[in-house]
Structures are given as C-alpha cells and as structure tokens.
C-alpha cells in the first residue's frame, strides 16, 4: 500500500545489475545505486554513455530485473508487483518506440485500453492528448510516416495518456531538432507543475542545469553524488556543472586507483 504522507515517488536502495556478456563475460552495469525522487520534482541522471543510466531506468520501469537492491515506484516494489508499477508510470525514450504500422490514434487507443480506459473515458483522454500535443494534423497517419518530432509528440501523448504519477524519460531529446527539443523541455516543466515526479537521463549538461531540481551524477555504474545544483557546488567547490562533473569523476577514478 502507498503511504499518503510519504512524498517519495521513486526510491532505490543499492540497485544493481549484472549481465553475462558473451564477449566480456560478467559485466556490472549498475553497482548499487541509491535514489530518492519526490512528487513534483524533476530529477536528472547525468552521466556519460555507458555509465549505467539506461540500465537504472530500465530496472525502475520493470523492463529489467535488478540483480540486487530494491526499488519502489509510487510505493510499489518493482520486483514484487511489476504490473502495478507499470500502471503507475509513463516511460519515454529517445527512440520513441512507436509501432510503425499503427496510427497515432490507434497507438493511444491501444495503450489507453490496456491502462483500463474504456468507452467515453478513453475517447475523451485521446481527444485531450490530441489537443495538448497538437496531434490533429498527423495523429491519424501511420507512425512510420511521421517525422521524428511528430513521433516524439505521439510518444509523449502515449506516455501520459493515463496520467501517471511518475514519468521516466531516457534521453528524451536525443535526435530531436531545436523546436522539438524545446517542446520536450516545456513538456517536462509542465509535468512538474502537475505534481508528477519526473526522472530523466541525459548527457546534455545545459538541459540538466535548466530543468532539474536535483541532479544525480552517474559514472561507471555508481551514483557519485546527488543533490541540487547548489548542493553539488558546495560538495565540489566548483561553479559550473561541467566542472562539478569532471571533479566528481576525477575523484572517483582516483579513489579506484588508490583502492
């Protein structure tokens, strides 16, 4: 059951993931990540490619099973009740992941139905999504024929159609042009106002600086530090996020070297 006094929307403790890779053998992709994100908060996971951001987000969204540790989404354990977790979150990645042979409307109808929306409620939700993301011009065309920006708008509409309390976005601006990227940033800001917890990964520092209430620096499968920009500045005595990031990474590498 969800505790109403608890504002934590995403909580992870010691979350870890190990893969068996045919070429590299055992790979520790995530080595014990702790995370606590609240309702109405935008939390950014910042890190280079291969740092473990996507794997962490995939574990939180039940796509992958954690090898160790525990994670709760809106108070529900991802390992114990993954189905309920999927009902409570919206997930979006840069690749959009839309079914190419369905139209935008069919995509929304399919996801809406599986989220328990039926009849007039479903049609009303689709109509709202069409208005909110301005899908009228292309929403009835097959997704395979849409531009990247149009696909991303349908994809966002799909992710929030059931009004989830938690939104997980994996590098959502990857591959988008300036306008589409700007729309995405506006959308993320609007979700904060709606009280949604937004966890998103990025390697674009300016995006993180502009949007995030708190930032987690992920490197080599570990969360090196997490906090507001001011807190991170205090931790590292650096002004700019890029410098903060470098400082934390250097400390981590030095620590490993010493060990």
């Amino acid at each position: 059951m969800t505790d109403p006094t608890n504002t934590s929307a995403i909580r992870a403790e010691g979350l870890a993931k190990t893969f068996h890779d045919p070429q590299r053998g055992v790979v520790e992709a995530v080595k014990g990540v702790d995370l606590d994100c609240h309702k109405g908060e935008i939390f950014g996971l910042l890190g280079p490619n291969g740092a473990g951001k996507t794997t962490t987000l995939r574990m939180l969204s039940t796509i992958l099973a954690p090898t160790a540790g525990r994670a709760l989404i809106d108070g529900v354990d991802v390992a114990e009740d993954p189905l309920e977790v999927r009902r409570r979150l919206g997930f979006l990645s840069g690749s959009t992941g839309l079914y190419p042979r369905l139209t935008g409307r069919e995509t929304l109808r399919y996801f809406g139905r599986l989220h328990g929306l039926e009849g007039e409620r479903l049609e009303a939700a689709i109509a709202r999504a069409f208005d909110a993301f301005d899908l009228h011009a292309f929403g009835d065309g097959r997704c395979e024929a849409l531009s990247t920006g149009q696909k991303q708008r349908v994809s966002i509409a799909r992710a929030v159609l059931h009004d989830p309390p938690v939104l997980i976005l994996d590098e959502p601006t990857t591959g988008l042009d300036i306008m589409a990227s700007s729309d995405m940033i506006q959308f993320i800001e609007s979700r904060r106002e709606a009280g949604t917890c937004v966890l998103f990964s990025t390697h674009i520092l300016s995006e993180a600086e502009r949007l995030c209430d708190r930032i987690g620096i992920v490197y080599d499968g570990r969360m090196l530090a997490a906090g507001s920009l001011d807190e991170l500045r205090a931790m590292t005595s650096k002004e700019w996020l890029e410098e903060i990031f470098r400082e934390l990474v250097q400390r981590a590498d030095a620590g490993e070297g010493a060990a």
Binding site: L83, R86, G97
Partner: peptide, 14 residues
Amino acid sequence: ERQTAETTLLLPIP
C-alpha cells in the same frame, strides 16, 4: 529491429 520491444515490455499487462 524496429526498437519497439521496450515499449511492448512496458505494457501494463502480465
């Protein structure tokens, strides 16, 4: 190949 496997795994169904 179409990169929709992740989307499908996120469907709120068993």
